[in-house]
Computed example of a mutant assay.
Amino acid sequence: MERPSYATRLKLDRMGIALSGLCAVHCVASILLVGLLGLGGQWLLAPEIHEFGLGLAILVGAATIGVGVLRHGRMMPLAVGGFGLALMGVALTVPHGAHEAFLTIAGVVCVAIAHVMNLRAHSF
């Protein structure tokens, strides 16, 4: 199996950071739109959106951070990213609301930080 190029890994790490940001925006928008305006609850809070997002985060994280660890040998991006994914997974098990939003946002922040750490580890 051919290893992905540096440019490909860079793009995937950046995509991971962007997806983390989109997830955080989705959380905040969902709380505002559903909580304050009563709009969009049927699709903004659908479990499938959250499950799909976690699955995508796992795929992108494995493709970038996992391969990065194999290349640069630094385990911290993997540990931080894994912790973030675990927080996101736990968020799927709690009812919608402030606890879910906190866990999800904390998780995506950890995942984004892990992608940044992975990018920095490649540049040294």
Score class of each variant (00 low, 15 high):
I31L: 14
L44S: 01
L12Y: 10
H26G: 10
E51W: 12
F83D: 00
L12R: 11
E2K: 14
L45P: 07
M75W: 15
A46Q: 07
L103D: 03
G61S: 11
L78M: 11
V80L: 07
L12S: 10
V111G: 06
P95N: 07
C110L: 09
S30G: 15
Y6D: 13
G35V: 02
E48C: 03
M75Y: 14
M117Q: 13
H96E: 14
G73R: 09
L119D: 00
L45K: 05
L45A: 11
L32H: 04
A62H: 01
R9G: 08
F102A: 15
M117G: 02
S5T: 12
L56E: 01
A106H: 08
M1E: 01
V67A: 07
H99V: 13
I65T: 01
F124D: 14
A121L: 08
L70G: 15
G68P: 05
S5E: 08
G82T: 03
V60W: 03
L44T: 01
V69T: 12
P4N: 05
I17V: 15
R14M: 14
A18Y: 11
A79Q: 13
L33D: 00
L10M: 13
K11E: 13
G89V: 00
G16Y: 03
A7I: 10
S5G: 06
M76H: 09
F102C: 04
R71M: 09
A79I: 15
R120W: 11
M15R: 06
G41D: 02
L36Q: 09
L10A: 09
G35T: 02
L12Q: 04
C23M: 15
A79N: 07
